[in-house]
Computed example of a mutant assay.
Amino acid sequence: MMSPLRLEVVVVPVGDVDRSLAFYRDKLGFHLDVDYHPNDRFRVVQLTPPGSSCSVQLGMGLTAMAPGAVDGLCLVVNDIELAHRNLTDAGVTVEPIRHKRSVDWQGDFAPGLDPDRRDYASFADLRDPDGNLWTLQERGFAGRNTDS
């Protein structure tokens, strides 16, 4: 039997830790778990998105990745329209919502929400101040049309 493997922390490379901390905490609503800064060469800031069991770490001396190098992190939301509006109201630039063009998805997108609000079918992108790319992805929309 294999031991459980849990993804609990992802390092996100940033250039200005304080600016990134403010963005993730104040604009995205992540909870600050740790801000450890024992010297001027090392700092680790750990934040957790609301409802998530996986956290992100920002800081100095954590990674050799260049600030802004992360592309493809997903934040799963129950209502992408609401999440888009809340983030935009908080001052976050969020790209327009898009959806998988077809049920037999070939990697192409169409503008707007998935007409049936299918799980994993509607998306919107945002970038942190360093350019790290996050994608909102809808799953579990309560008002989804289940007749099709």
Rank of each mutant, 00 (worst) to 15 (best):
Q46W: 09
C54K: 00
F30N: 04
V56P: 00
L21M: 08
S53P: 01
G59D: 01
L21P: 05
Q57H: 06
G68K: 06
D33M: 04
G51P: 01
T63D: 10
N78P: 12
H31C: 02
G61R: 07
L62R: 05
V76Y: 14
M60L: 14
D71G: 00
G72E: 11
F42I: 07
F30W: 14
D71V: 01
V34C: 04
V17R: 08
D71I: 01
D16T: 00
P38M: 05
L75M: 14
V76L: 11
C54G: 05
F23H: 01
V17F: 09
D71R: 15
L21T: 14
F30V: 02
R19I: 03
S20C: 13
Q57D: 07
L47W: 04
C54V: 14
D33S: 07
A64L: 03
G29K: 05
P67F: 12
L62T: 06
Y36K: 00
T48G: 10
A64W: 03
D71K: 06
R43K: 10
V34G: 00
V56N: 00
K27S: 13
T63N: 06
V17H: 06
P49R: 02
S52K: 07
F23S: 04
L75S: 05
V34K: 12
P49D: 13
D16A: 11
D71M: 05
G72H: 03
Y36S: 11
L75F: 02
R25L: 01
L47M: 15
D16R: 13
A22E: 12
Q57P: 00
D26H: 07
L47T: 05
M65A: 15
C74I: 09
G15F: 06
Y24E: 01
S53W: 03
D33P: 00
V56K: 02
V56T: 08
V76W: 13
V77L: 10
C74M: 15
D71S: 02
T63E: 12
Q46S: 08
N78G: 15
M60Q: 14
C74V: 13
P38G: 09
G72Q: 12
S55G: 11
P67A: 10
L21K: 14
H37N: 12
V70A: 15
Y24P: 01
T63K: 10
N78A: 13
S53H: 12
A69D: 15
T48V: 09
F23Q: 03
F23G: 05
V14A: 01
S55D: 03
A69P: 06
T63G: 13
G68Y: 09
A69F: 02
I80A: 14
S55E: 08
N39S: 15
R25G: 05
M65G: 08
V70N: 08
Q57W: 10
P67S: 06
L75I: 15
H37T: 15
D26M: 02
V70Y: 09
L58C: 07
V56G: 00
H31W: 02
R41N: 10
D26F: 06
G29P: 12
S55C: 07
V17G: 04
V14R: 01
Q46Y: 05
L73A: 08
Y36M: 10
V34F: 03
D79C: 12
S52P: 06
L32W: 04
S20L: 04
P38T: 07
P49H: 11
